[in-house]
Design a protein around this nucleic acid. Structure first.
Lengths: 155, 155
DNA sequence: TGACAATGATTGCTTTGTTAAATAAATTAT
DNA sequence: ATAATTTATTTAACAAAGCAATCATTGTCA
């Protein structure tokens, strides 16, 4: 068992204690945030990722799979499967782009949009709850700090 | 396609644009942080989760599966399977607690500890990199804000 | 004591994450 | 024009997440 040293570890080769580990803190925060959202989504029969796909499509309209994957923060292979199952549930449709026939254009269906419409309010309340516990300022600050850890982000 | 309104949405039923969504920000930040760590771990043949398990065992010594799952932020069923594969690789051992024979006590092996020892330095440098880009203050601040989103955490 | 609840852990099932390889259409270069 | 390259997407294979159900052991209490 490694001995814990309760000193600054900046000049040492020590990792921060797992209780102050950034990756673990990110996981736990995510779990805290997603837990009520998952609970809310359980009634709809769709998953967290499927909700994200619907959100993006609803917000920006039809788009190709690559852009969708990017905006919903999903990996390509994941999205392929997710789109398949969502098509079976008729939450979206998929058509080949005739200008560039490699591209698959995905569109939300009325049934998909209905799920969004039915749940926006609940979702917004959950978000508002977190904004409330942190306070508006710290909430925005958190989003900024998180953005700085995202390599895609400019900064 | 939903019309975007560029106004404050506090009093409306609108969700924040997906680009300012907390769950998505958390996913992206996590991806940004884990990407170099995964790269580093690729050489060792273990996954991010297995690394966490080794870290916790190395830091706190042998413990039962429940406590380990808690400290490594893994779900029980996940840990059961992860421990199985790690046992096959001889990174840890598992023995029944004789006082309470429901409990399984997990211990890191020398081979497991060696992976930690070989890579602590690299890992610490990666962490230091993030501390550097954010600055010591904002880094600590971020950890505090994230902790507030964790229901397990006191606060 | 003996039925019953509570606890610790595992198993089964479906979905997603992650990497690598394959396919297919478009672009570039020779 | 055709071979080589790049781009968009899919498939395959394995690890892990998340949820429900199961199993074994321990604890409670009538």
């Amino acid at each position: 068992m490694r001995t814990l040293k309760f000193v600054d570890n900046a000049m040492t080769n020590e990792l921060p204690s797992t209780s102050r580990s950034l990756p673990i803190a990110l996981i736990r925060a995510r779990e805290g945030v997603m837990s009520p959202i998952r609970e809310m989504l359980a009634e709809t029969g769709i998953t967290e990722q499927q909700w994200r796909v619907l959100r993006v499509l609803s917000e920006h309209g039809p788009m190709d799979v690559g852009t969708l994957a990017d905006r919903a923060s999903l990996l390509f292979p994941s999205l392929t499967r997710i789109a398949n199952s969502m098509r079976k549930k008729e939450l979206l449709t998929q058509t080949r782009d005739e200008n560039d026939r490699r591209r698959q254009v995905v569109t939300i269906t009325p049934a998909g949009q209905k799920i969004i419409d039915d749940k926006v309010e609940d979702a917004a309340q959950i978000v508002a709850g977190f904004k409330n516990t942190l306070g508006e300022d710290k909430y925005e600050q958190l989003l900024d700090l998180l953005a700085q850890l995202d390599p895609q982000h400019d900064g």
